[in-house]
Structure formats: structure tokens, C-alpha cells
Nucleic acid binder design. Structure first.
Length: 665
DNA sequence: GTAGGGTTAG
């Protein structure tokens, strides 16, 4: 008679929806050994199926409860009836049925009152499955209290708490504390403890603890456990400056699997060592380890970083061919890759054909469109997203605001910024303020931008100050720029980019002595300007050029090509924009310096290496300079080539002497 | 009860 049909439960659930307490319990998804639970005169009955051996088909009431006015069988009688494990499971069922921390404490108090003492197994299990920090704290407080004696489950219990904290966003440090406490109590870690605590170390970048855990792993001989070592690789990759150590662990592992390779490839990719990531992926294939979906996501992220569209396309076909499972996340990575490697239409195409989209899918296309300067499309896509019932998060607003900024949509940007808090309840973070400063600065509203910064609820960061300084330089507010830069250098005296900014301002003010002094100071401190570089992919190989680069074996031919380009451009009416050159040299030398920019070298190389009419794709590490921008426009017309340039923050499509950015960048 | 992944202003 306790065989309640599913339909009946559903009906009851619906009837009782108004009653918060009961429906909370009814929402509970029962573990598999509990086959039914039903609501009977407002009592909750947890029923068991026939036991695994197939004895007795009847179910017994293990816990009968009037909503939150508890009437429980005592633990001893539960144990007598069902054995220890089942008794614990029934407690767990009740605790899991609490979907709020408040309910948890209530139920736990009742359990204690009914003689079901501190059931640590149940509590820690609850904490580990809960994302509620309060629940984890509550359980760990009990576990760590001195009067608790946990002879049976020592390591397991600690593992559970360490794991729960390791999975939190901001409290991974507590996982480390619990681990330390566990060691102090003389509880030995096992092979499951290490991945948890290493993950926490990785999350907070605690290299010292990571190393000491590594020592402990060696001491107890867990260094032949592939799971432990995989997390070790991950940990070293996440702790700054220790890729070499990660690689050492990786190289010395007696056996590895796709996870090991993913950890190492992903580590390289996250650190921006994209060429290493791709190289290791190629090695992985020669070794014969089958890459999985997650490997492919890391590889795609490396392609995205390099702007390696051809390689990215190859990865896509590889995914098809090898039938790698195409999850939403993998699709998102593909969309991001195509968008950032310059094939935004392919990205849009993939996006439209997805049957399930997450906020990340939307964000990827929105950011992609923003990078391509397609501001109005970005906005309509955002509106479409809202209509589709997606809840916007703070990341998508960064994409949206930067779209407004790249397309000069000042009023729209301001409106969306205000709507964040008003309409969507998202408090703008410093990055959103940064977007707004950028928006105002690009539109030439330097004074308004300054006012905006002064009225911000937080202190401006270095990025915002730099945006202001660049705007001051571009719009002739040199004195103001100088004073902000000096402030910037006082804040962070060891950052070379501030010195570069200041020296650029002095160049523009024609104050060569001050500029030389800055350069000397930089030399004294051993600082160097980041050299501008341009990358190009030809026949699946990436080539990188810096200004005046003669490292390529065909540099003679390349420079001849550049001379020819220069002659053709002059004939077509090109004049070098020497005002951007920040060197104290004469006009002729300035022109020469411009001609040797890495972008022009890469274009000359591409003209030599690719058949007429094929598009040229370039990836720069800095923003494209005014002279290269103008020169590239000329070249696109003279040589009848589509030239796609991804610079530090957006795409430029050069065709027939025009650029898609409409000279606004 | 075990590991590994993606989106973020200049």
C-alpha cells in the first residue's frame, strides 16, 4: 500500500506547493535506494524498496515527521531495523531535503533531539553536495570541534570538507586550513585527499603549500597515482612561474592519460604559451593518446590566442572526423575561436545552429561582434538574448559596453550602463567603469571622462588611468596627461608601460630632454618597452615579426618587396604619418622607422608567399598604428587583397582601400 | 567518494 505511484506523488506535490515546508521536502530527489516518499496527512514518509537481496517487498516508515514538528524514531531503533548504513541514509535524505541552510540547522537540531547524535557522515555528505557556504561551515565546525571523535571515517570526513571548500569560489583557502588541521591531528591523507587540496592550492596560487603537498605525495608514495599527478601538473601550472615544474612532473609520470595531456596543454594555453600548447598537442598525437573534448577546448583556446584560423579550422574538422563529443562548452570554444580569428560569420553560423545555448555562447558572439565593430548588430543580439529569457551577467555587459565603445555609440552605452543596476540588478564593477571611460575617451570627451572617473565609487585602476592618459595624448591634453602619468608611476614604480606612456607624451610635447631622461631611468631600472609584433599563419605555420626583423632566412626578398610596396603606395598618394613616431630623429629617419614596422614586414611576406587574391590575416600584440592603418588601406587596393588585422582589441577588415573600422579605433 | 576546459575593458 505504500507503493505510491509517481503520478500520485506529483499530484500531492502540486496540492501542497503552497506549503513551503512540505514542498521543500517533496522536491528532494531521492537516492536510488529510496523508491518513494509521499505526503500523508502532512507527514513525510520515506520508504525503502525491497532490499538489494530481494527480501521483503514492503516498505517501512523510517522517519515520520510533521512538518518541522519532528517525530523521529531514535537512531538505535533505526539501526536495529535497517542497519547503520540505512539509518544514515535516512538522515541524509532528510538533510538533503533541506534546500536552505536554515532548514538544515532545524532538521539537524531535531535529529540531535531525537537521539541521532552528530551524524558526521551525513553532515559532511550534505556539506559536500551543498553549494551553500553556511552549510559547509556548519558541518566543518562540528567536524573540527575538539569533542568530536571520528574513528571510522577520519580521512573520508576530512576529504569531504576539503573537497567542499575547494569547490567554493572565494573560500578555497579554507580547504587548505582543513587539510593542515587534518595533518596536525595526525590523520593520514589518502589518494583522494591530494587532488582536493592540490586543486585548492591551484585555485589560490599557494605554491608553498603545493610544494609541501608534493613532498607528502612523494613520502607516502602516491606519485604513481595518475589522478594525483594530474592535479599536481595542474597545480604547478596555476602557481605563477612554475610551468617548468609542471612539465617536469608531466615528463616524469610513469603513466598518463588524456587528462594529463589536457592539464599540461591547458596550462600552457592559460599562460599564453600558445605555441607550446599547440606543440604539445602535436606530440600528443604522435604518442597516440586520444584527445578528448577538454583537450580540444584548450587547443582551440591556443588557436584563438594565436589567431591561427587555419589551425582552428583543422581542429574543427578533426573534431568531426574523430567524433569528439561536441558539448555546449566545445561549441562555445569554437565560436570564440572563429570570432577572434576573424571568421565572425562562421561563428554566427555555429551559434545559430546550436540547440542549447548558455550565457557563455551568447557572450562569445556578442564579444566577437563587438571586436568586429558591428555595434548595432551586437545590440540587437543582446536584445534578442533578453527576449530569449537569458539572464545577463556582468561579463556580457562588458562585451556590450565595449561594442558601444568600438562603434562610437556613446548614448546607447550610457543607457546600457545605467540599465545594469536599474533593470538587471547588476552592480557595475571596475571593468564596466573602464568601458565607460574608454567609450568617452574614444569619442573625444576627455573632460567628461575625467569627471566620470572622479565620480566613480572606487579608485581608478592602472588600466583606467592609462586609458585617460592615451586620450590626453591623442586629444592634445598633454599637461593633464603628464600629471596623471606621474601619479601612475608613483602608484606602481616598477611598471615599464607607464614610463613608455610618459615618454610618448614628452615626444608629443617635443620635450626631448625629458624624454631622454625617462629612457635613461628605464635603462637604469633594467626595463624594456614591449616590442610590437605581428604574427601570420602560412601553411599551418605561425611566423612572428618584430620591427626591422631580419631573422627570417628570406629577409632580403621580404625587404625588396617592402621597397616595392613603398614605391607603389607613394604613387597612389600615400604619405607617411610621421607624427606618431616617438623617436627623437629627423623626418626621413622617422619614415624609415615606420616602413620597418612589423605589420608591413608581415604583409610583404604574405604577398610573397600566398597566391594573388587570397586574403591576408595578421595578428598584432599591440594596437595598429595610424601609419600602418593608412598604409594597409593602400596596399589592399593596390594588390587587390583583403587584409584582416586583429589588433589588441579589435578587427580591421581592409578592402579596396577602406577599413571596416571606418578609421575609428 | 578521485583529475583536466571556455567568455572579461586598455
Amino acid at each position: 500500500m505504500l507503493m505510491v505511484q509517481k503520478q500520485k506523488v506529483e499530484d500531492k506535490k502540486r496540492d501542497l506547493e503552497k506549503d513551503v515546508n512540505v514542498s521543500d521536502v517533496a522536491d528532494f530527489e531521492p537516492p536510488r535506494w529510496i523508491f518513494c516518499f509521499r505526503l500523508m496527512d502532512q507527514n513525510v514518509v520515506v520508504g525503502y524498496p525491497s532490499n538489494p537481496e530481494g527480501r521483503s517487498g514492503s516498505c517501512r516508515n523510517v522517519a515520520v515527521e510533521r512538518p518541522w514538528g519532528m517525530k523521529m524514531q531514535s537512531q538505535t531503533s533505526l539501526v536495529r531495523t535497517f542497519g547503520k548504513r540505512e539509518a544514515e541514509q535516512s538522515c541524509l535524505a532528510l538533510l538533503q531535503a533541506c534546500n536552505t541552510f536554515e532548514k538544515l540547522t532545524q532538521v539537524h537540531a531535531h535529529l540531535l533531539k531525537s537521539g541521532l547524535q552528530n551524524n558526521l557522515l551525513v553532515l559532511t555528505k550534505f556539506a559536500s553536495t551543498s553549494s551553500d557556504l553556511n552549510a559547509i561551515n556548519y558541518a566543518s565546525r562540528i567536524l573540527l570541534s575538539p569533542e568530536v571523535d571520528t574513528p571510522l571515517y577520519d580521512t573520508f570526513l576530512y576529504n569531504t570538507i576539503v573537497r567542499a571548500y575547494a569547490q567554493t569560489g572565494d573560500y578555497k583557502g579554507r580547504a587548505v586550513l582543513v587539510y593542515n588541521f587534518m595533518r596536525e591531528c595526525g590523520v593520514l591523507p589518502n589518494k583522494f585527499t591530494y587532488p582536493f587540496v592540490l586543486k585548492a592550492c591551484a585555485g589560490i596560487g599557494d605554491l608553498n603549500l603545493g610544494k609541501s603537498v608534493h613532498g607528502s605525495v612523494l613520502k607516502f608514495g602516491f606519485d604513481n597515482d595518475v589522478h594525483v599527478q594530474n592535479t599536481m601538473v595542474h597545480m604547478y601550472c596555476c602557481c605563477e612561474g612554475n610551468v617548468e615544474m609542471a612539465r617536469k612532473v608531466f615528463d616524469e609520470m610513469p603513466k598518463d592519460d588524456s587528462v594529463t595531456w589536457s592539464a599540461m596543454i591547458g596550462g600552457y594555453a592559460r599562460l599564453g604559451l600558445s605555441a607550446d600548447a599547440i606543440g604539445l598537442f602535436r606530440k600528443m598525437q604522435t604518442v597516440g593518446v586520444r584527445p578528448d573534448e577538454i583537450t580540444m577546448i584548450s587547443v582551440l583556446s591556443a588557436c584563438t590566442d594565436l589567431g591561427a584560423l587555419e589551425l582552428g579550422k583543422w581542429v574543427e574538422s578533426y573534431i568531426q572526423k574523430e567524433k569528439v563529443q561536441k558539448s555546449v562548452e566545445l561549441c562555445n570554444a569554437l565560436i570564440d575561436m572563429f570570432a577572434k580569428c576573424g571568421d565572425i560569420d562562421r561563428a554566427l553560423n555555429l551559434f545559430t545552429n546550436m540547440n542549447e545555448r548558455t550565457i557563455v555562447s551568447w557572450t562569445s558572439v556578442i564579444v566577437g561582434l563587438a571586436m568586429h565593430g558591428r555595434g548595432l548588430e551586437t545590440i540587437s543580439l543582446f536584445e534578442e538574448m533578453i527576449e530569449a529569457g537569458m539572464v545577463p551577467d556582468y561579463v556580457v555587459f562588458i562585451g556590450l559596453l565595449s561594442a558601444c565603445s568600438h562603434s562610437g555609440l556613446v548614448d546607447k552605452g550610457k543607457r546600457y550602463f545605467d540599465s545594469m543596476a536599474e533593470k538587471y540588478g547588476i552592480l557595475p564593477k571596475i571593468k564596466h567603469y573602464g568601458c565607460m571611460v574608454d567609450l568617452l575617451c574614444r569619442a573625444g570627451l576627455v573632460k567628461e571622462a575625467l569627471e566620470f572617473v572622479q565620480n566613480m565609487p572606487m579608485e581608478p585602476n592602472q588600466i583606467i588611468l592609462r586609458t585617460l592618459i592615451n586620450a590626453c595624448r591623442a586629444h592634445g591634453e598633454l599637461k593633464l596627461g603628464e600629471s596623471i602619468t606621474e601619479q601612475l608611476i608613483r602608484n606602481e614604480p616598477m611598471d615599464e608601460s607607464s614610463y613608455v606612456l610618459l615618454s610618448n607624451i614628452y615626444a608629443k610635447m617635443l620635450q626631448w630632454e625629458k624624454k631622454t631622461k625617462i629612457r635613461e631611468e628605464m635603462d637604469e631600472q633594467g626595463m624594456r618597452k614591449i616590442p610590437g609584433s605581428t604574427m601570420i599563419e602560412i601553411d599551418n605555420e605561425m611566423y612572428e615579426f618584430v620591427a626591422g626583423d631580419k631573422s627570417h632566412k628570406e629577409h632580403k626578398e621580404i625587404f625588396e618587396m617592402m621597397d616595392e610596396m613603398g614605391r607603389e603606395m607613394k604613387r597612389a598618394g600615400y604619405a607617411a604619418s610621421t607624427s606618431e613616431v616617438m623617436l627623437d630623429i629627423n623626418e626621413e629617419d622617422k619614415e624609415d622607422a615606420l616602413n620597418r614596422h612589423s605589420e608591413k614586414i608581415a604583409i610583404a611576406f604574405a604577398l610573397l608567399k600566398t597566391p594573388p587574391g587570397t586574403p591576408i590575416r595578421l595578428v598584432k600584440n599591440l594596437r595598429v598604428c595610424a601609419d600602418c592603418h593608412s598604409a594597409t588601406k593602400f596596399i589592399s587596393k593596390i594588390y587587390n587583397r583583403e587584409i584582416v588585422v586583429r589588433d589588441r582589441n579589435r578587427f580591421h577588415y581592409f578592402k579596396d582601400g577602406l577599413c571596416s573600422c571606418k578609421d575609428f579605433w
